[in-house]
Design a protein around this nucleic acid. Structure first.
Length: 631
RNA sequence: GCCGGUGUAGCUCAGUGGUUUAGAGCACACGACUCAUAAUCGUGCUGUCCGGAGUUCGAAUCUCCGCACCGGCACCA
C-alpha cells in the first residue's frame, strides 16, 4: 500500500476565506479522496498562516490581540471546509505549539548545517532618513542628499539563508524532474528565473514581534515565508520525528494558486536540501478564478458569491462546476450562467435522469435488482468501457487534468443512456423478453454504481445518494465490474439533481452582491510623529511634458513646473496614463525626496498617486498656484 | 526591453512524428421515442483553425514577421 500526502497552502486568516481558497482546497480534496479510493494511506493537510503582518494589522484594527483575532477567524475556514465537504485530516494552525517547536527545530538544523548566517546590511546610513544608501547613490563627501548630513557607517544584523548555494542543484532538479512543477509554463518561468541567479534571502525580522522567535536569537523572529513553508513538515510531527512524519514525508502534492509556486518550487526545496530532507514530488500551481474576466479583489469588491450559488445548486454542483469547466492550469472565468448550464445538462439531465429512469423501470417490473441472466448486444462493450474509463481517469488525475477526468466519466454516463435507448429496455416487459430486460437493468445499475465510485472524489454526496437509491447499505468504493448484488431493494427517491429552470433562477441579489466591502484600509502602518511628517515637502505642480522611458514598461519621464523651478521626475504610471493625458495636469509632488536614477533617468521628486489595483493621480479639488505647499 | 504561454465553431475546450471531408460537450434546429427530471436517442448547423510570408506535393500542425491577450523578469522613489 502506498501513501499519499497532499497539502494546500496555509491561508492568511486576515479575513474570511474566499473562492480562490475554496478552489485550491477542493482540488486537493479530490486528490485526497481519489487516493483513499485507491486504498492509499492518505494525509491531507490544510490550515492557516497566522503569523502574518496582515493578520497583525487586521487584529489591530479590530482592537484585538493577534491571537484573539486568529481564534476568531480560523473557525470561519473550518466552517467553509465543512460546507464544501473537504476531507482534510489536519487543519493546522501556525500558532500551535507543535508548529512553533517544529519551525524552531527546522531553523536550528539549517543553522547547524551552516546555511544560515548572520549577515549584515552595512553601509552608509542617514540617521534622519533611517535608511542605508548604496555606493552608487553617494557622492565622495558621504553626505545625505536629503538632509545634507554626514552619513554614518552602520551595520544592521540580520539572518540570511544561503539560497544562492542551491541554485545549481535546483536547476538540475527541475531539469531532471519534468513533473516537479505543474503546469509546464510555470516550470519554464522558474528555470528562466533560476538562470538569472539567486540571491541569499533574509529570513529574520528584528522589528516585528508577531511571529516565532529565532531559537538561537530571540531578538529576531522567523520570516513569514520560512515559517509558513515549514508547516508542511511540522504538521506531521517533524519536531519529534514522529511515525506520522516518517510515513508521509515527502509530500506527493503541494497544491496552490499560481502566484506562490516560486516559493514552493525554489525556496522550499532549497531549505529541504539544506536540511538533508527529501523534496516534495509535485508542486502544482493552478490558475486563478476570475469574475467577468477580472481578478478577484477584496478592495474592489470583485468576489464570487459562493454561498448564494451553493444554496441554489448545492455543494456538489459547485465542486463539479469548478473542476469540470476550467482547465486546471489556466485562469477560469466564473460565471453563474455556466454553472447553471452545467447543472442542468450534466448533472440533472445526463446523470440524475439516468438514475431515475433506470430505477423507475426496476421498480415497475421487478422485485429488487434482477439477476443478469441473459447477455446480449452491447453488454460486453459497456463492461469494456467501464475498464477503459478507469484507466483514462487515472491518467488524467495524475496529470491534474480534472476537467478531462470528469469528461471521461461523463462519456460513460452518456453511453449508458444510449445503452438504455438502443436496447429499448422499456419494451421488454413481456414474459419472453423479461430476463433480457432484467439483465439490461442490472447492467445499467451496475454502471451507475461504478460511476458513483468514480465520481465520489469530485461529488461525494452525490455518489452516496446514488448508491443509497440503488439499495446499497454501505458505500461500495470498489470499481470492479459485477459487484452489484442482485435482489437488493432499490429505493427510488427524489431526483438527485432536480432541474432548475432559468425563470426560477435567483436574480442577482442587489443587497449582498453589489456593495464592495469598503470596511478596512489596506494596511495600517506604525505611527509617525508630526515632526516626521513635517519633513515631507509636498507642493502643487503642473506637468509640462511626459514621455516614455526606453526599455521600461511602467515608467514615464515627466517635466513638472513647481512655480519657482522646473524639475524632471520619473513616475511608475505608464500602465495607467498615456503621456498625452498627463500634460497640463496639476499634481502633488514630493520635492525633497532624495534624487534617484532610474533606468538611467534622473528623478528629482515623486508624484503622488493612489496606488492599488489601479493607479490614480492625487490632485487638489480645484487648481491652486504652482508651488503651493500641501499638508 | 528580455523570456514564456495563449489565440481552433456563439460558449468551454480537444487536436501537431504535416497528408487529403478540422473534432467533443454545451447552446441551437429538426426527427425518433415515451421508461425518465419538457428528460433520452438520432441527424444537422455555423469555423478565413489570430493575420501575413515562407518551407513542402501537402500545414491549424514546421520556420520567420506581425497583432491581441495573459504571465515571469527588469522596473514602480
Amino acid at each position: 500500500m502506498s501513501t499519499f500526502y497532499v497539502t494546500t497552502p496555509i491561508y492568511y486568516p486576515n479575513s474570511e476565506p474566499h473562492a480562490g481558497n475554496a478552489y485550491t482546497t477542493i482540488a486537493a480534496d479530490v486528490l485526497a479522496r481519489y487516493h483513499r479510493l485507491k486504498d492509499d494511506e492518505v494525509c491531507f493537510l490544510t490550515g492557516v498562516d497566522e503569523h502574518a503582518a496582515n493578520v497583525y494589522n487586521a487584529a489591530k484594527e479590530e482592537g484585538l490581540s493577534p491571537q484573539a483575532y486568529c481564534d476568531k477567524i480560523a473557525p470561519t475556514f473550518v466552517k467553509l471546509w465543512e460546507r464544501l465537504n473537504i476531507s482534510h485530516d489536519i487543519f493546522f494552525r501556525t500558532t500551535s505549539d507543535l508548529h512553533k517547536r517544529g519551525a524552531q527545530k527546522f531553523l536550528n538544523v539549517l543553522y547547524d548545517n551552516g546555511d544560515v548566517y548572520k549577515g549584515k546590511y552595512e553601509g552608509y546610513y542617514c540617521l534622519s532618513c533611517e535608511e542605508f544608501f548604496s555606493e552608487k547613490e553617494l557622492t565622495d563627501e558621504k553626505i545625505c542628499p536629503v538632509h545634507k548630513l554626514q552619513l554614518q557607517w552602520l551595520e544592521e544584523e540580520n539572518y540570511f539563508f544561503r539560497l544562492s548555494k542551491y541554485q545549481d542543484r535546483l536547476l538540475a532538479h527541475i531539469h531532471e524532474n519534468p513533473d516537479f512543477v505543474y503546469p509546464a509554463a510555470r516550470r519554464n518561468e522558474l528555470l528562466n528565473f533560476l538562470e538569472s541567479g539567486l540571491q541569499d534571502v533574509s529570513i529574520s525580522r528584528a522589528s516585528l514581534s508577531w511571529g516565532i522567535p529565532f531559537p538561537f536569537d530571540p531578538e529576531h523572529i522567523i520570516y513569514i515565508w520560512i515559517e509558513a513553508l515549514s508547516n508542511y513538515i511540522t504538521a506531521l510531527g517533524y519536531e519529534t520525528n514522529s511515525e506520522h512524519y516518517q510515513t508521509f514525508w515527502p509530500a506527493d502534492v503541494h497544491m496552490m494558486g499560481k502566484d506562490i509556486t516560486r516559493f514552493h518550487a525554489l525556496l522550499w526545496p532549497a531549505m529541504l536540501m539544506a536540511a538533508n530532507l527529501p523534496l516534495p514530488k509535485h508542486i502544482v500551481g493552478h490558475g486563478w478564478l476570475t469574475k467577468d474576466g477580472e481578478a478577484l479583489s477584496k478592495t474592489r469588491g470583485i468576489f464570487i458569491d459562493m454561498d448564494g450559488d451553493i444554496d441554489t445548486y448545492g455543494v456538489d454542483a459547485f465542486r463539479y462546476y469548478l473542476l469540470r469547466e476550467f482547465s486546471f492550469g489556466n485562469d477560469g472565468d466564473y460565471r453563474p450562467a455556466r454553472l447553471h448550464a452545467r447543472y442542468n445538462a450534466d448533472l440533472a439531465n445526463d446523470l440524475g435522469n439516468l438514475l431515475n429512469r433506470v430505477l423507475g423501470l426496476v421498480n415497475k417490473n421487478f422485485e429488487g435488482i434482477p439477476a443478469p441472466t441473459t447477455p446480449g448486444e452491447f453488454d460486453d462493450e459497456i463492461e469494456a468501457m467501464a475498464q477503459t474509463t478507469i484507466d483514462q481517469l487515472d491518467a488524467h488525475i495524475s496529470a491534474f487534468a480534472f476537467d478531462a477526468a470528469l469528461e471521461t466519466i461523463w462519456e460513460f454516463v452518456r453511453r449508458i443512456n444510449r445503452y438504455v435507448q438502443q436496447t429499448q429496455v422499456w419494451t421488454l416487459a413481456k414474459p419472453e423478453t423479461k430476463p433480457r430486460m432484467g439483465t439490461i437493468l442490472y447492467n445499467s445499475l451496475e454502471a451507475l454504481r461504478f460511476i458513483s465510485v468514480l465520481i465520489s472524489p469530485f461529488v461525494p454526496d452525490t455518489a452516496e445518494k446514488i448508491q443509497k437509491q440503488i439499495g446499497l447499505q454501505e458505500f461500495d468504493t470498489v470499481a470492479e465490474w459485477g459487484r452489484l448484488p442482485v435482489k437488493l431493494t432499490v429505493s427510488r427517491g427524489e431526483p438527485i439533481f432536480p432541474r432548475i429552470d432559468t425563470k426560477q433562477q435567483k436574480q442577482p441579489q442587489p443587497k449582498a452582491a453589489a456593495e464592495p466591502k469598503q470596511k478596512k484600509k489596506e494596511k495600517t502602518t506604525d505611527l509617525v510623529s508630526f515632526t516626521d511628517f513635517q519633513k515631507l515637502d509636498l507642493r502643487v505642480a503642473r506637468i509640462l511634458a511626459a514621455e516614455p522611458i526606453e526599455g521600461a514598461d511602467r515608467l514615464l519621464k515627466l517635466q513638472v513646473d513647481l512655480g519657482t523651478e522646473k524639475r524632471q521626475v520619473v513616475a511608475g504610471i505608464a500602465e495607467h496614463y498615456t503621456p498625452e493625458a498627463l500634460i497640463g495636469k496639476q499634481v502633488i509632488v514630493v520635492v525633497n525626496l532624495e534624487p534617484a536614477t532610474i533606468r538611467n533617468v534622473e528623478s528629482h521628486g515623486m508624484i503622488l498617486a493612489g496606488s492599488g489595483d489601479s493607479v490614480v493621480l492625487a490632485t487638489l479639488e480645484t487648481e491652486m498656484p504652482l508651488g503651493t505647499q500641501v499638508r
